[in-house]
Design a protein around this nucleic acid. Structure first.
Length: 563
RNA sequence: UGCUCCGUGGUGUAAUUGGCAACACGUCUGACUCUGGAUCAGAAAAGUCCAGGUUCGAGCCCUGGCGGAGCAACCA
């Protein structure tokens, strides 16, 4: 009976699903659900956008509707095609499709113009010749009402004439704007005669020099929703105060029962990073990181290069949920999501990051054995591979200690350890270089202890990964850590976020030794370097010069003990 | 001191809409293990921002506080 109880337990819905289902049950918009993802092409997508993408496309999918991709390209001074292309790539990577519904706010410049003219004709919009500063002053403050512009009561004819001449290039940028005529005393600042069109003479990436006037966000977004038949316009919390304006424009547009609805949800914030496009752009421009796709960036291309899978990003988004609470999410949850995914999928390999040579003195010189090792204990279908073993091998420097503490389960004087998939070896001696550092460890092995052999069951304290010196491939490994060393770098009073940069966020290791099967590894192949973590092949990698990025380390209870 | 929104373990979310505050991550035990991984078992951790009220019963409803966030770009 326990099972049936579990089955009948209702799935809890987040507030947006509840809104949508209520709308559906009331028969709104003919029972349609149609959403849109509306990025501005002025930067690369980050994981915060992934949250929006999963919601926009996810709600459409769940309720049998559609989701449009719409570029919100109303500001030619900031937007570029480079960004359009990257945005499309990232959405596809996440696993969503907009089919043939790729739209641009600029597609609607004509309709928007006509709508503005309509508002002028209704006496609901006027041309204001005042400067930006004056208009700002007249706006009032949150506690004081604004004052009306002296141009507020121009005749319809004059407004029409001026508006057309604005678009003919007759006036300079900033010399005048078109404003909606609403209420200068509204407690909501956005309703105090908002600017809806401004003059911009920068060519637009799609419409070229056709237009000299461009609509503002508030005059483009909701209307675009309306033109496309959007039913649920999902956006982040800071647009909450824009909703009355959104609705006001829809009121002017509406001709039947159809009406889009704006719903706001909380942004995604992550610990130890920054999420604003402006700050990310600064990090790129100032060379703090290598580019938008630097594996330390929270951008989708950065996460991709870091080795994150789309599944893990979507899983993470699913785990954090949608609410109206401004939250900051623990990056360890993201890391949990990739580990969970890669644990099941990534083949295991041997890679030694900081090599220490071990000579097995009683192993015949020149002998090579092919050890058969399973590729993934979590997934037998991934089969096995052969890894060459010989007299001289490399192990991790950290896996040997001359004077180990009690809980050290690895190689040390007097100890024996298992070489995974091979033999049990016993320490016999060491060599040091002239700086006093251990340069070589000597051991002996017992043939009977080979994996699967008669004495392979013998208990030893530890199991090490290793790679045959003669067969090893050299590799470069890039170890990444959090970009900032404080949880909320952007939220610190009086301190610039850049002062919290983690100086050790990138460590490049050369001369690492990896097993020969990796010779054919190509980006974006992903592996678990046994006992170390998950790594992927970087785009910089070539056949002669392998480069791996550490996506995330394995959980390391030994490292934790040492803190 | 205007408007809007938000306060549930350390973090993120639940609570079948008024019925014994649950789940995940993280933390800590223990078992198992040829990855100090994974897996399994278990523990600690909030009495729901505060104060009143309604009710047999309030995290959910009401009133009043307190705290936080957003809003005064010719940005989105």
């Amino acid at each position: 009976m326990k099972e049936s109880e579990e089955i009948t337990k209702p799935e809890s819905q987040h507030f947006i699903e509840q809104f949508i289902e209520k709308d559906l049950s009331e028969g709104k918009n003919d029972g349609r659900v149609h959403t849109r993802f509306p990025p501005e092409p002025n930067g690369y997508l980050h994981i915060g956008h992934a949250k929006a993408i999963c919601l926009d496309f996810g709600m459409a999918e769940k309720y049998g509707g559609k989701c449009n991709l719409r570029f919100d390209d109303t500001n030619p001074t900031k937007e570029e095609v480079e960004y359009v292309d990257s945005i499309k790539e990232d959405i596809k990577w996440l696993g969503f499709t907009w089919e043939d519904r790729e739209y641009y706010a600029s597609d609607y410049f004509g309709k928007l113009w006509n709508f503005a003219v309509l508002l002028i004709n209704r006496g609901l919009a006027y041309v204001d010749d005042q400067s930006a500063e004056t208009i700002a002053e007249q706006k009032g403050t949150p506690t004081q009402p604004g004052t009306e512009s002296p141009y507020r009561n121009r005749s319809i004819e004059e407004n029409l004439d001026l508006f057309y001449r604005m678009n003919e290039g007759e006036f300079e940028e900033g010399s005048c704007v078109l404003r909606a005529r609403i209420d200068m005393a509204s407690p909501n600042l956005h309703m105090r005669d908002p600017i809806i069109y401004r003059i911009l003479k920068t060519p637009h990436h799609r419409t070229g020099t056709t237009w000299k006037v461009y609509p503002m966000y508030d005059f483009a977004h909701g209307q675009s929703d309306y033109f496309e038949g959007i039913t649920h316009s999902l956006c982040t919390l800071e647009f909450e105060v824009h909703r009355p304006l959104y609705d006001w424009f829809i009121d002017q547009l509406q001709t039947d029962d159809y009406r889009p609805r704006q719903i706001e949800f909380n942004r995604l914030n992550l610990t130890y990073t920054v999420m604003s496009k402006r700050k990310l752009l600064e990090l790129v421009k100032e060379g703090v990181v290598s580019g938008w796709d630097d594996p330390r960036m929270p951008t989708l291309c950065g996460l991709r290069r870091r080795g994150y899978t789309p599944e893990s990003v979507r899983r993470f988004v699913d785990l954090i949920g949608y609410t109206k609470v401004e939250a900051i999410n623990d990056v360890s949850l993201l890391e949990y999501a990739v580990r969970e995914d890669l644990n099941k999928r990534a083949p295991r390999v041997f890679g030694v990051l900081r090599p220490l040579k071990v000579i097995i003195t009683n192993y015949p010189e020149g002998k090579v054995e092919q050890m058969e090792i399973e590729n993934n204990p979590e997934d037998v279908t991934q089969g096995k591979r052969l890894v060459p073993f010989s007299r001289e091998i490399f192990i991790e420097r950290d896996d040997f200690m001359e004077n180990p503490p009690n809980k050290f389960f690895r190689l040390a004087p007097g100890r024996e350890v298992r070489l995974k998939g091979a033999y049990i070896i016993k320490y016999t001696g060491l060599l040091k270089d002239n700086k006093g550092e251990v340069s070589e460890v000597h051991c002996t092995y017992e043939p009977e202890t080979r994996s699967g052999g008669p004495q392979s069951d013998r208990k030893v304290k530890g199991t090490l990964h290793w790679v045959s010196a003669e067969h090893a491939l050299d590799a470069e490994v890039r170890l990444y850590d959090r970009l900032f060393n404080t949880e909320d770098p952007a939220g610190q009073k009086d301190e610039d976020y850049r002062s919290f940069l983690n100086p050790d966020s990138l460590e490049v290791l050369r001369g690492c030794k990896v097993e020969p099967s990796l010779a054919t590894a190509r980006p974006p192949d992903k592996f678990q370097f046994q006992r170390l973590g998950y790594f992927c092949v970087d785009n910089d990698s070539t056949t002669g010069n392998l480069v791996f990025n550490r996506t995330v380390g394995l959980k390391d209870t030994w490292a934790k003990l040492n803190k």
